[in-house]
Amino acid sequence: MITFEDVTKFYPGQQRAALRNINLEIDKGEFVFLVGQSGSGKSTFLRLILREYRPTKGTLYVAGKNLGTLPQWKVPGLRRQIGTVFQDFRLLPGKTVYENVAFALQVIGRPGKEIRRVVPDTLEMVGLSGKEDRPCEELSGGEQQRVAIARAFVNRPKILIADEPTGNLDPETSVGIMKLLDRINRVDTTVIMATHDSSIVDQMRRRVLELRDGELVRDQAKGIYGSA
């Protein structure tokens, strides 16, 4: 699903590589934790997959496409296959739960009939049935993150990228969010989650990629947060 072949990324005007010689493969349906300190390259890793940047060197394939040569106008098509969740939720204020989720489908031109069918299903899946008409600002942090996950997943992407999704949540709420991501992973969605939350990583025992100063220093199946 995702293949890094000797990928290096320099930001313009910077001497140090944000990512250096990354080689790895992530298969369809995998659940991968991306760990490392701030500035270790996690965000760059995720942004390369989203084609917000191109690799400086090396080749990166996502969903069968070579992102180094993918023309600009095909980027929206790539992004429709990737759902994204952030630490700060990034919901649209002033819109209801339903509207926030429906927005993701409206703006890619999905017909209203399909939207009216798919959005309630997705909201039920993330456990927000009955809260469709609530303004997002009134929800708790955990509920807001569920809305964000619903929005990321409503188009049934092949890949879900989560950048510190539990960073703003208390441990109990985080567990709920992790259960949800696990459920999404079980329907064959590849999930890549960057996190600092050691207890979650240690509990889930999934593949762990650790970055340090832009280099991949650990790629461990059923790993834990700290190096063994």
Binding site: V75, P76, R79, R80, A104, R151, N155
Partner: peptide, 13 residues
């Protein structure tokens, strides 16, 4: 904000 999300979910330019 809307534009950022549109880009993220793959709305065309």
């Amino acid at each position: 904000r809307e534009m950022g999300i549109m880009r993220l979910v793959g709305a065309s330019n």
